[in-house]
Nucleic acid binder design. Structure first.
Lengths: 140, 140
DNA sequence: CTACATCCTCTAGCGACTAGAGGTGCAAGA
DNA sequence: TCTTGCACCTCTAGTCGCTAGAGGATGTAG
């Protein structure tokens, strides 16, 4: 079997080298075997696992959630109810975040549009920040 | 003049007590005068400043950006071009974040809808995570 | 054999707080 | 007046998910 270095694993999975080591250190990735000269030697399964982690991180799952998802993946006979619950919770988070950001966007637009590019004492950006009561959408 | 304790300042501004002290420690808030017994004694202007900071934080501005916005607020004769630029940059960030979250939302919905609530080996949540190629929107 | 890239471990730092230990101040009730 | 008990004080360390750097070992190509 060919030896996969940490650099190669990083390239193939899209996870950076120090991050791979970090994942190993927090037990998200099994410590791989080592070469004569103490260098990590990964297997194809490790690359898949890293890609899984990376994708889950991109979707905004927290490390602890990923830990659960990984143990589920490791045992395919389990019920996927936990995985479903984690994904649903994340979906709700994302939906809330989007709503909140939309409100912020509206408020920022008012600030930016109202700015007459003059002096600060006429600036709507500063003014709106100073007085929350002026927000059209007090969602936060 | 009445003395405003840190607890009162926190209540009125909506910033937590330890956070007020933190803001003082990083120089975002002038150190207030102290009472006989070494307790902080705030003035109404400090409350406004804290409310300003809190609002800006809620809008997602970073501490450094807020520092700039505060110096602008302190000198109303300056041009508000910087404030405008900061707000515009933040607006662009928020818009990008919304777009990205919409893509995530779509992907999470596919995962959750596809979940048959059976065993993990048929679970779309795990499957999609394991294979990024299945994403309909590879925006990330 | 000599560069040079890549690897190793270890520690410290990022942002923006938050938690906790261990101690002091102060107002109100007995 | 004393005591209870909350609010205050400083200081350090922890949170999350990495990232950067020091200082050294290994592996490969010319």
């Amino acid at each position: 079997m060919k030896k996969i270095t940490i650099g190669e694993a990083a390239r193939q999975s899209g996870v950076k080298v120090p991050t791979v080591r970090y994942y190993e250190s927090i037990g998200l990735l099994m410590a791989p075997s080592r070469s004569e000269g103490n260098q990590r030697s990964f297997e194809p399964a490790d690359i898949s696992r890293l890609a899984f982690i990376r994708h889950a991180r991109e979707l905004g799952f927290e490390i602890d959630a990923i830990r659960t998802l990984l143990t589920l993946q490791d045992d395919p006979h389990q019920s996927c109810a936990s995985a479903d619950a984690i994904a649903k919770a994340r979906l709700i988070e994302v939906e809330q975040r989007i709503r909140s950001l939309m409100a912020l966007k509206a408020e920022l637009e008012i600030m930016v549009e109202g700015c007459g590019h003059g002096r600060v004492d006429q600036c709507r950006v500063i003014e709106v920040l100073a007085d929350h009561g002026q927000c059209t959408h007090p969602h936060h």
